[in-house]
């Protein structure tokens, strides 16, 4: 099936497409998870004097919106969504420094890690990849993350969001340790604290004083976009 499609479409030369066609093709290429093609398309648009913010918005973010809809509707499966996220990341690698240069606000930045004692990281990885797919810059601290490591990373990267995950009921209480430390260092209000993991729930979120509990990676992306937007609206 894919074979047949290949034959008809393999010849597309991105540089020969008009802007509109190129953007449309990039939406398709994002959808198909083609990292090289997205990098190439991004560069072509920049070379045609598109601003990085315009490339981000028109070519990438709107392409990923289609992905989001089809994921929700069960057309795209998670392994495919991760391919699209990987393609998005390739575009962002080119755009991020340019966005910073023109002072454009990036989509957002997140520090993420699985808490101390826990090395079950499949959920955290999934959330991280999905966030990258939405254009966020993600700093992944890995597994078994100590409170000191979180603090160091937060000071270094100044993210919008801190994400913590735990799979074990025995490790989830450590999230509160981290949040308490943030409070005592006066950093808590600078951050959106997002928590996730199979055994968590809304009650637990309230009890430990996190801002939001996300039951899955897709929800995390939606909530992150919304909360970062709200926070910026208040700030301005």
């Amino acid at each position: 099936m894919t074979q047949e499609v290949n034959e008809t479409e393999e010849d597309i030369i991105l540089a020969e497409l008009a802007d509109d066609e190129l953007v449309e093709q990039m939406h398709d290429d994002l959808y198909d998870g083609l990292a090289d093609e997205i990098a190439e398309g991004t560069q072509i648009l920049l070379d045609r004097d598109w601003g990085p913010d315009k490339v981000l918005e028109k070519a990438l973010v709107s392409g990923m919106n289609i992905v989001g809809v089809d994921f929700r509707d069960g057309i795209l499966f998670i392994p495919e969504v991760l391919q699209t996220a990987n393609a998005m990341k390739a575009g962002m690698a080119i755009l991020s420094p340019l966005l910073a240069e023109i002072g454009a606000e990036p989509v957002g930045k997140m520090v993420i890690g699985t808490v101390k004692g826990d090395i079950h990281d499949i959920g955290k990885n999934l959330a991280g990849m999905m966030m990258e797919g939405a254009g966020f810059e993600v700093i992944d601290l890995g597994v078994n993350t100590l409170v000191e490591d979180y603090i160091t990373a937060l000071n270094e990267h100044k993210p919008d969001i801190l994400g913590m995950s735990a799979l074990l009921t025995t490790t989830m209480p450590y999230m509160k340790v981290v949040i308490d430390e943030l409070k005592s260092q006066g950093m808590r209000d600078d951050l959106i604290v997002m928590v996730g993991g199979a055994p968590l729930n809304e009650e637990f979120r309230k009890a430990i004083g996190a801002d939001t509990y996300c039951r899955d990676a897709a929800t995390a992306v939606e909530v992150a976009k919304k909360m970062v937007g709200e926070r910026r609206a208040i700030a301005t």
Partner: peptide
């Protein structure tokens, strides 16, 4: 492997229906 084009959204929706 380098992934290849499969027709974006339209292609995928058709494929999934099959």
């Amino acid at each position: 492997q380098r992934p290849s084009r499969s027709g974006g959204r339209a292609g995928r929706i058709t494929a999934r229906a099959i």
